[in-house]
């Protein structure tokens, strides 16, 4: 096999993601990663990621605010003069391009772990964590959630630190602790004795 450790890990990770409840993942992942620890020289101190936690209530709040710069632009959708772009794992940019030469960002809709969207009749269908949420955007000054179907997209709620440029470099991170809340993002920093990596 020519596969590197991290490729194998990712394959197994995918296997677990396909089959297991995503909430189990942090445990499974850490359990699994630790199997490799003995074969691997884990760094004592390295650049890595620590989870950013939020309470379930905060993570499930849909809210709208002013436009913000695109950092990690994701999936796109258009209807009429409006253009929508996912900001990976954090929300949706709303853009008016009725004048294509001067498109205007109208605002940003926050939805934790947002990855996908569709829009119809002034309603955004997207994911918030593993839930389907429907968001009324008919009035941009009063953007609000109108309905939710819980836990239907476990695949979309899985989260580990981002890879840049599809690279296969090992990423070390502090293992998520479900007691501290839901992981809503990752902060790059110097970490000591990392137990988790991908």
């Amino acid at each position: 096999m020519l596969l590197s450790d991290s490729r194998v890990t990712t394959l197994f990770l995918n296997y677990f993601l396909m089959r297991k409840n995503f909430l189990l993942l942090p445990f499974l992942a850490c359990l699994f990663f630790s199997c490799f620890d003995s074969k691997r020289n884990l760094p004592k101190e390295t650049t890595g990621y620590v989870p950013i936690y939020a309470s379930a209530e905060t993570a499930k709040t849909i809210s709208a605010g002013p436009a913000r710069p695109t950092v990690q632009g994701g999936k796109i959708y258009t209807t009429g003069n409006l253009l929508f772009q996912v900001e990976q794992d954090s929300g949706i940019h709303v853009i008016n391009y009725s004048d294509p030469a001067h498109p205007q960002k109208l605002g940003f809709i926050r939805s934790v772990l947002c990855k996908e969207l569709s829009v119809k009749n002034g309603f955004i269908y997207t994911n918030n964590l593993s839930d389907l949420v429907v968001i009324d955007i008919n009035n941009m000054n009063n953007v609000h959630e109108v309905s939710r179907v819980a836990s239907v997209f476990p695949d979309l709620a899985v989260q580990y630190p981002p890879r840049t440029n599809n690279s296969w470099e090992t990423i070390y991170f502090e293992c998520p602790d479900p007691k501290k809340g839901i992981v809503i993002g990752w902060q790059q920093t110097t970490i000591k004795n990392p137990k988790c990596w991908r």
Binding site: T78, T79, L106, N121, N138, M140, L156
Partner: peptide
């Protein structure tokens, strides 16, 4: 711009997504 764009969104029913989407209407 909000009113204008909201109107057009409502008027145009569903739109179009990219080819890599996992959601579609």
């Amino acid at each position: 711009c909000t009113k204008e764009s909201a109107d057009s969104a409502a008027a145009n029913a569903s739109g179009a997504g990219g080819s890599t989407a996992k959601f579609t209407l």
